[in-house]
Design a protein around this nucleic acid. Structure first.
Ligand code: FES
Ligand code: FES
Lengths: 141, 141
DNA sequence: TGATACTTGACTATTTTAGTCGGGTATATA
DNA sequence: TATATACCCGACTAAAATAGTCAAGTATCA
């Protein structure tokens, strides 16, 4: 099980953004430089974040992005959801009664994978952007 | 974040095995048929499980595999570890002081990813094969 | 002696990831 | 008004990972 760079970058970039967006919008170029993430890739990511109303964009010179909600209200779940970083422990469709590999019923361990998925999602639902920023201040990173 | 089929199959196969290994070894052919997993792929998986002493093999006719430990003592951690299904939330090496993308320090969110990794691994450390079998009996699957 | 079933290693198609690239458009400022 | 900045959008691609397959064995039982 691994977290993809897209998901990791989305959170990193938003933490960076949240720390600097007091007055002015933050440009992706700055985030790119500070966090060492490809600018082109960041643009893809922020396009998704904007569509899910996590950030707002400001075009033109001195433009950039600002948070569209309070940091406290942005949970990891929302971020991951926006960039399609989903937790998936099974191959079969959740809604369907059918199992993997075209089997007519769900597998022996199906309940386990559901539990696992919930376990991980719980973590994402609890953590907000605000938590992450506080965490950094305490550690003075 | 997704669980790979290899990891999922390893656990499925072991649950199947654990339910049938009272007297005789269980052949991969049987597991393959019951669980709908490719025989060739199962062989790869069991080769690893054997090397990590989770199962024992019995060659020849009427051969197959048996558990090498009590079901209570086999945790998901052990199974995933055996088949190289590891939880990885970062790209950079854990031991190293350096960050991702060759950066000289760890990133802003590094602590978060460590927490996440621990959170998931905790789940795997708690669950044993015995738990999974009991679970099935209760549900009469 | 044959059938069963484990053993090993190499090989491959498909999918996913992690980007890149080339063209835009809006806006502030000089 | 010209220009630079920075967002916007879609298509493309190299590399890695995944999910297998395939071939050629060896051990053991009946
Ligand atoms: S994981 Fe698909 S049937 Fe259980
Ligand atoms: S994830 Fe690699 S530096 Fe933090």
């Amino acid at each position: 099980m691994k977290l993809t760079s897209k998901g990791r970058y989305a959170v990193m970039a938003l933490v960076d953004l949240a720390r600097f967006d007091n007055i002015n919008p933050v440009s992706l170029r700055d985030i790119s430089l500070r966090q060492g993430i490809s600018l082109d890739y960041l643009e893809q990511i922020f396009s998704k974040l904007r569509k899910k109303e996590i950030v707002q964009s400001v075009r033109g010179t001195q433009g950039g992005y600002v948070l569209n909600k309070k940091a406290k209200e942005i949970k990891l779940t929302n971020i991951f959801d926006a960039v399609d970083e989903k937790v998936k422990t099974v191959q079969c469709k959740k809604e369907s009664k059918k199992g993997c590999n075209g089997k007519s019923t769900k597998c022996l361990t199906h309940n386990l994978w559901d539990e696992l998925e919930n376990h991980i999602n719980n973590f994402f639902e609890k953590k907000s952007l605000e938590d992450l920023i506080k965490d950094n201040v305490e550690r003075r990173i």
